[in-house]
Design a protein around this nucleic acid. Structure first.
Lengths: 123, 123
DNA sequence: ACACATATATGTAAATATCATATAGTAAAA
DNA sequence: TTTTACTATATGATATTTACATATATGTGT
């Protein structure tokens, strides 16, 4: 049920990749360690990802539970302290397998789009 | 929690596009009307999609509720009767917008893979 | 009579996403 | 000095989606 207008149609955008944010985070962290709020800004700037900040923090905690990242509190004079995340060996491995999966996903999309072009020409 | 081995890691494959099956179904139906079981075979053969049959039937009923397809029962001498689905005008519109979304998704994946190639060269 | 392929459907649980809200530190404006 | 804005982390509640199991029924071949 669409929340904005109350209609019976689903409102979520189509085409979302499940948990795409996770490899994006790991890619950023493999360049340099960072904290949640900083990752939010980088995800929007460099990854074209719009981010729900609550989801991002929850995702980071989950990724630490999965041992893909580890975190340490960092003193911050200019504002609230930060929880700084660093990628682990497991995180690098997942990033590698995620890249393979995304290549497969990309092929599926291409196959679909090719098929779509064909029916578009006919009709 | 992983069901097969009981470990604390998530087991689902990474890279799944949410509801990707729906535009795939609509693409097949825009070639010719079909029923659930037939769509299952075509999705696996032509779309490279492994399909949960229960999910497929539920998805088709939902798509009819959304007016993307309509269905009629068809007599079948060679087996149980079939519910045959036909794409609607709304379904064609959704298919078009899904194709646009997937082009965007594809760009996100490419951006990610380019970034990944860069860090792979460095490390 | 029984197994098997075809055919549709639902129950339940887990995982994920969305939206709202809570809390707190720092700095600058009013 | 109080209020506002920005930075920063986190959780509650709900909706959506997926996964796996199970139920039901028809027709064919052995």
């Amino acid at each position: 049920m669409c929340k904005t207008c109350g209609c019976s149609f689903r409102s979520r955008d189509f085409g979302n990749i499940e948990r795409f944010i996770e490899p994006c985070i790991l890619l950023l962290l493999s360049k340099s360690s960072s904290h949640g709020y900083g990752l939010m800004e980088d995800l929007e700037k460099h990854c074209g990802e719009k981010v729900d900040i609550g989801d991002l923090y929850r995702t980071l905690r989950r990724m630490e539970k999965d041992d893909w990242v580890k975190s340490d509190w960092e003193k911050n004079i200019a504002g609230p302290d930060r929880r700084t995340y660093t990628i682990t060996a497991d995180g690098k491995n997942f990033l590698m397998s995620a890249a393979s999966s995304l290549i497969r996903t990309d092929k599926l999309i291409h196959r679909f789009l090719e098929g779509y072009q064909k029916i578009k020409i006919i009709h």
